[in-house]
Design a protein around this nucleic acid. Structure first.
Lengths: 88, 88
DNA sequence: TAGATATTTAGATAATTGTCTAAATAAAGT
DNA sequence: ACTTTATTTAGACAATTATCTAAATATCTA
């Protein structure tokens, strides 16, 4: 369907690394940014792209905003790939 | 082959449409270009990106160059996604 | 209320990308 | 050889994007 935003989101290495990080469970924006050598503003931008693509969801809890992996859209991509391979 | 090029290649709608076209079997560059409202040069560029990403292969037969879908790399992507979902 | 912390938004910039036209290469037919 | 057909390559340009700094917003605590 609207794979466009999703594939664009996945096409950046920092964003894929963020998704890998979130595999271990929800994390705050600050925690997510730690391993990356870039400003919080840039990390925030990447989180916004991932959210817009439906790959993560966010929830504010007090001072923090927690981001969590959203797997449903990943299944759609897997489905599209399976379709390409002829298993449709 | 890193995912970087592959995801970048998949992040363009024209290139995804080309992959869908090739589901039906190998096609020449000219045939591939027909459904798209762009110059042959632009289609050729997209084919080059897809090839560089390992998503298609090409073979010259006389005047024509046939392009064919390459599914192995798609399996790697499916594997990466499965890993994200925790099935690893 | 004021200040500290967490995060986003706004604006700017350099690099990348999708597209075009024009020229080049490759093969086939006359 | 020359021409036609198929496709790629080169060079240019506008749009997009990843990143930064600086400023704004949201929340908590003293």
């Amino acid at each position: 369907m609207a794979f466009q935003e999703t594939f664009k989101a996945l096409s950046d290495p920092t964003r894929r690394a963020i998704l890998d990080l979130l595999k271990g469970g929800a994390k705050t924006a600050g925690e997510i940014g730690v391993p990356f050598d870039m400003t919080g503003a840039t990390v925030s931008h990447h989180l916004s792209v991932l959210k817009e693509a439906g790959l993560i969801s966010d929830e504010r809890r007090g001072k923090y905003i927690y981001y969590e992996l959203n797997v449903t859209i990943l299944d759609e991509i897997t489905g599209w790939i399976a379709g390409l391979k002829g298993d449709s």
